[in-house]
Design a protein around this nucleic acid. Structure first.
Length: 753
RNA sequence: UGGGGUAUAGCCAAGUGGUAAGGCAACUGGUUUUGGUCCAGUCAUUCGGGGGUUCGAGUCCCUCUACCCCAUCCA
């Protein structure tokens, strides 16, 4: 993990490792076994196991099974299958939160003893009511007053099953007025008399996610607990539990990333379940579903899914990935892997009138650009089938295939020409009578005939009948909202496709490219040699189809007039703020924006006044205070400042006297906030005084110009952007000390010369 | 409405004050016995809007806007 691009999570891990915060990284993939895994899980699996692999750490597979009413062993198996299928190794054992019920209970008891948790006996409705709303604080239940002894007794009896469900809950005692709703005395345990799929009947209380998850992470020695964005608000509880219990380090920290969304499909458990239970698809492994089982059954390779997950990256912005990206990954993977064979989806009979007998043609399984060996014999005789799409009686412009006037090559065989089109009573084409050119045999063609296209075909006598299931997007729109958006043509079953015999007799693979059609997979469930069934994995790119009927492209990007953005109202200033503002603008002649920033912030105003008292240079000081000091205040708060107004005044003075450049001033300021040293000392120690002597700067510029002839040419060619590049290079060469104004002038002068 | 997040091309996404990476999609052209692959090329004067600071801002400051998450005894 060095030269490859890092996502923000890997950056955090690397930094923590470098800082010695942990000895090794330890992640976990913690699904609740209450549904079948989908490609969103794959993203998380690839992330968690991938980070562990990249940094030589470990990744646990943990079933987060704290709700006995929802979970089931079949989901555990499905989850394990998914991880295994993707090629990751969870080590010795699968972890279960349910294995920690005992320890978790002990931690809860500890919290009660610390008076940080209490048994609440409000009912569900009351609890909701007491919680308040996002704008109003909640209020604490009277039961929060219970003594430690009473809480201990009650909690134990809850565990023993003495109470009805809902009679009591265990809650953390945090803050009912917290602006974070999650922190308003979150529930830790609830009573459930349900039987747990793993631990059975023993327990009558079950821990909640917020209590169990952080502690499970801690107990397993997890270092980085990665979860999706919707848990951002839960992070405070995560930290609270670990801190309140005073657990000894190292402890895990939670980081959040955006979950995967993809267009033309749905990803939520609820919606997926609706599709399956409603019979809109054929089970959890329906190849149209974005479930791991679906992709697997459809014929996707684990490699392609992993590549996809790596390509889309990990970030914090909610986004919807184009399914075309996934399709690219599987095509790209299969292109170099699978044999090419011929299958005719919509057969049209062709009789080659001047051909007699039969022969076996040599045909490689792989095209010239795939470095793999292997071939089969292709039977050829008088009667063959081609695809109906590959003949056109009245061809559109640009049609390369067979027409009454245009010959075509039969892939791996001869060139044929159409002699007669046979139609039925309704005028449908039922057969083509054709002629072949004996000297045009593939590999030894001396006919000199040029054709535009080579099409797939099968020999009538030896071809096998096959069922081909052609899948299209499950939904007809990018962001489906409900069942109404289902694509009625998402599954097309072709019963009478014809396939060359070698596919069944030789079985060179289970995945194939059906030449010129796409990639297909022998269905692992329904396939038999007697009744072959193939699933379409993905089609080939088809630039002819695109040309023939162009998609209704959303009107080309006309330089649209920028949508005017509504501007909200700015809160009016208080009298006090207004007073400061007036003073700053009149007395000190500050720019209104800067004055505004300062005036609206009491601490900044005060800081500013103090600094000006030390050095009478209001404008310079105001700029530093309103920009840089404001940032420090924002980031670190105003307590524990390492510098005071006096230091800022000194900095301003050096700036005013041009001892240092504004660029260096930023650097000095950083140093000042980090170490608390006086600006003069920093400048002195690091030798940061500005270089303004042109004689000193000029040779450096010459050097930069000499080293970048390409960019000089580009600049002189009119690429004005490069000006900044040269200035930057010169500044870099001088450690930022060159006076940028002088550099600018000199660079311009020399470049224009 | 309080709090927590996010905003860079049609879709993802790098980018930590000095030339707006990369992938997908799209579009040219070349090679091709797959209208595939491959190869060469095009595709952001600009980073949600407006101001400010700076020689220089996608990056720092102020402000506005839009979207997502939180008031399950789910996770």
């Amino acid at each position: 993990m060095s030269e490859t691009k890092k996502d923000f999570l890997r950056a955090i891990v690397e930094e923590d490792l470098k800082a010695g915060k942990y000895e090794a990284v330890h992640t976990r993939f913690p699904p609740e076994p209450n549904g079948f895994p989908h490609i969103g899980h794959a993203k998380s699996i690839v992330l968690n196991f991938g980070i562990a692999r990249d940094f030589n750490g470990q990744c646990n597979l943990r079933m987060d099974d704290t709700d006995p009413t929802k979970e089931d062993m079949k989901y555990v198996e499905a989850l394990k299958d998914a991880v295994k299928w993707l090629g990751f190794d969870w080590g010795k054992k699968v972890y279960f939160t349910s294995d920690y019920f005992g320890k978790l209970y002990d931690y809860a008891v500890e919290l009660i003893k610390m008076e940080k948790a209490y048994v609440d006996s409000l009912n569900e409705e009351e609890i909701r009511e007491y919680r308040g709303t996002v704008t109003e604080p909640g209020r604490r239940s009277k039961y929060a007053q219970r003594s430690v002894e009473e809480n201990l007794d009650l909690f134990e009896r809850m565990k023993n099953g003495e109470f009805e469900e809902g009679a009591h809950v265990l809650r953390a005692k945090i803050d009912m007025a917290s602006p974070n709703m999650k922190m308003r005395d979150p529930l830790l345990y609830r009573i459930r008399h349900a039987s747990h799929y793993r631990v059975g009947e023993g327990w009558h209380v079950y821990p909640m996610y917020d209590f169990a998850h952080c502690l499970s992470d801690y107990m397993e020695g997890i270092t980085h607990s990665l979860c999706t964005l919707e848990f951002e608000n839960n992070r405070d509880i995560y930290d609270w539990v670990i801190e309140t219990l005073g657990l000894k380090p190292p402890r895990p920290y939670q980081y959040e990333f955006a979950r995967l969304n993809m267009n033309y499909t749905v990803m939520s458990k609820r919606k997926l379940l609706e599709l399956v239970e409603g019979g809109y698809v054929n089970g959890w492994d329906d190849p149209r579903l974005p479930t791991i089982a679906g992709y697997k059954r459809r014929g996707y390779t684990p490699e392609s899914i992993i590549t996809f997950c790596e390509q889309i990256g990990v970030a914090k912005a909610n986004s919807t990935v184009d399914v075309a990206q996934l399709e690219f990954c599987i095509r790209d993977d299969l292109n170099t892997k699978v044999p090419r064979v011929m299958c005719v989806l919509d057969p049209l009979k062709v009789t080659i009138e001047n051909y007699e007998g039969s022969e076996l043609l040599d045909a490689s399984y792989y095209p010239h650009d795939v470095p793999k060996e292997g071939s089969r014999k292709l039977p050829f005789s008088k009667e063959i089938y081609i695809d109906r799409n590959d003949f056109s009686e009245h061809p559109p412009k640009g049609y390369y295939r067979l027409t009454p006037e245009q010959p075509v090559r039969l892939k791996h065989a001869y060139i044929i020409a159409c002699k007669e089109v046979v139609k039925d009573a309704e005028g449908n084409i039922v057969e083509i009578k054709a002629e072949y050119y004996p000297d045009s045999k593939s590999g030894s063609d001396t006919s000199g005939i040029k054709v535009r296209s080579a099409i797939q075909w099968v020999d009538a006598a030896s071809a096998k009948k096959a069922e081909v299931r052609v899948y299209d997007r499950l939904f007809k729109c990018e962001a489906p909202e409900g069942l109404d958006d289902l694509n009625p043509d998402s599954l097309k079953v072709i019963k009478n496709a014809l396939i060359e015999p070698a596919v069944i007799e030789e079985k060179p693979d289970v995945r194939f490219q059906f030449e010129r059609e796409g990639y297909f997979y022998a269905d692992p469930v329904d396939y038999s040699d007697e009744n072959p069934v193939f699933n379409k994995i993905v089609g080939l790119k088809d630039s002819w189809a695109k040309k023939e009927k162009p998609k209704p492209q959303p009107a080309k990007k006309q330089k649209q007039p920028k949508p005017v953005q509504k501007e909200g109202e700015v809160a009016p200033m208080s009298a006090e703020e207004q007073g400061r503002y007036d003073r700053f603008t009149h007395e000190y002649k500050l720019n209104p924006e800067v004055a505004n920033t300062l005036a609206r912030d009491e601490k900044l105003s005060h800081f500013f006044d103090e600094a000006v008292a030390a050095h009478e240079s209001p404008v310079t000081i105001a700029n530093i205070v309103a920009n840089d000091v404001a940032r420090v205040f924002k980031e670190n708060g105003t307590d524990s400042l390492t510098f005071g107004a006096k230091e800022v005044a000194e900095l301003a003075k050096m700036l005013d006297e041009e001892t240092i450049s504004s660029k260096i001033a930023k650097q000095v300021f950083e140093e000042m906030t980090a170490t608390g040293k006086a600006p003069e000392t920093i400048v002195e120690e690091k030798g940061l005084k500005q270089i303004s002597n042109p004689a000193e700067i000029a040779p450096i510029i010459d050097d930069v110009i000499a080293k970048n002839p390409d960019n000089v040419a580009k600049y002189r060619d009119g690429n004005q952007k490069l000006f900044g590049f040269f200035v930057g290079q010169v500044l870099k060469a001088t450690g930022g000390k060159a006076n940028p104004k002088v550099v600018n002038d000199l660079v311009r002068e020399k470049l224009e010369a």
